[in-house]
């Protein structure tokens, strides 16, 4: 017999956590606000006029895009993790498996090293280049994805080595590279929200359309026997998620843990069925990164990537211990 929590409880919990995370993200910061002031600013909207122009600007121009960026990045990474783990039938898979994070890190570091600016663009080009290389090296027409995973690991390793080389000779630029790679939402602006919205739309569409196929692939059933064109579905899912994740990591750096552990956490509590696993992970990833970023902000702008592990890690360990 199974002991799973009801999905309705999960929806209440994750959406409450998301609301709490968003409110905390908007409330806490260097400029102090009362809760009444915050809700007044929210009521006024982004184009409202008030005597408290500074506070209005802090809420709507700085904190709101930051909260949205953290939430959407968390959602994209968690959803990407669910999809990768199902398609690759590997609990250790994460959205960075096909080398997009290494590519983004290399692209951003190269831009910092050569001082050319365009860090986001270079990171995105790096991640797309890595993905293209992986597909060229490991993509097979018969739908066998083991070659693709191997190519992802190899390309990731090569880019990792190249990145180490860059860091070794970076001199005073090293700290900028390291800070970028740790991931942070401190510089998030409204201009980042649109690409992230596209990334979120991609993963939401994929989750809405392919939940049943993901169940079949994750269960161990033979997808082709049940009528799934496995190679086409894999290509769409892995390619789509990698592209969406590239849009996120190229802006805010490599944020680990969310894509790997949030899906496991949700699966452990609410079961492996993708009909609920996907939306719960999306909301779970969004709330975790929102809370982690709020903590990061209050902790002298520590990288959010470090805090996601510090916030989510102990919870995961506790659940693992309880389950065993």
């Amino acid at each position: 017999m199974i002991r799973r929590l009801p999905a309705s409880f999960g929806y209440c919990a994750v959406f409450s956590a998301l609301c709490a995370g968003a409110v905390c993200g908007l409330y806490f910061g260097d400029v102090r606000l009362t809760m009444d002031e915050l809700f007044e600013m929210l009521r006024l909207g982004p184009f409202g006029v008030t005597e408290e122009a500074v506070k209005h600007s802090v809420v709507w121009s700085l904190r709101m895009p930051r909260v949205l960026a953290a939430a959407m990045t968390g959602a994209v990474l968690a959803c990407g993790g669910v999809i990768f783990q199902a398609v690759l039938r590997n609990p250790l898979a994460e959205p960075y498996t096909l080398g997009v994070a290494s590519g983004a890190a290399f692209g951003a570091s190269a831009a910092i090293f050569f001082g050319v600016g365009f860090i986001t663009e270079s990171a995105f080009a790096g991640s797309m280049g890595a993905l293209f290389l992986v597909w060229m090296l490991g993509g097979r027409k018969d739908g066998d994805i083991s070659g693709t995973i191997l190519a992802g690991v190899i390309v990731g390793s090569i880019l990792g080595a190249a990145l180490t080389l860059l860091k070794a000779i970076a001199g005073e630029r090293l700290s900028a590279m390291v800070m970028w790679m740790m991931g942070s939402f401190a510089a998030a602006r409204w201009s980042d929200v649109l690409p992230l919205l596209s990334a979120l739309s991609i993963v939401l569409l994929l989750s809405g359309f392919y939940a049943r196929e993901l169940d079949i692939m994750a269960s161990g059933s033979d997808g082709k026997t049940l009528g799934i064109d496995v190679s086409r579905v894999c290509l769409i899912l892995l390619g789509g998620v990698s592209f969406a994740v590239s849009l996120a990591v190229s802006r805010f750096g490599v944020i680990g843990f969310v894509g790997l552990v949030v899906p496991h956490l949700v699966r452990m509590l609410f079961g492996p069925g993708h009909r609920h696993l996907l939306p719960l992970s999306i909301a779970g990833g969004a709330s975790l990164l929102c809370l982690a970023d709020t903590l990061a902000k209050g902790w002298n702008e520590l990288p959010a990537g470090v805090l996601t592990v510090l916030v989510g890690g102990p919870v995961f360990c506790f659940l693992l211990w309880r389950r065993n």
């Binding site: 079949i216 269960s219 161990g220 492996p272």
Partner: peptide
């Protein structure tokens, strides 16, 4: 027969309705 995720028997059998 390979089971790679902790679905219930009912959930697993239900996937046969996919086509």
């Amino acid at each position: 027969v390979l089971f790679s995720s902790p679905y219930t028997v009912l959930e697993y059998v239900l996937m046969g309705r996919y086509p």
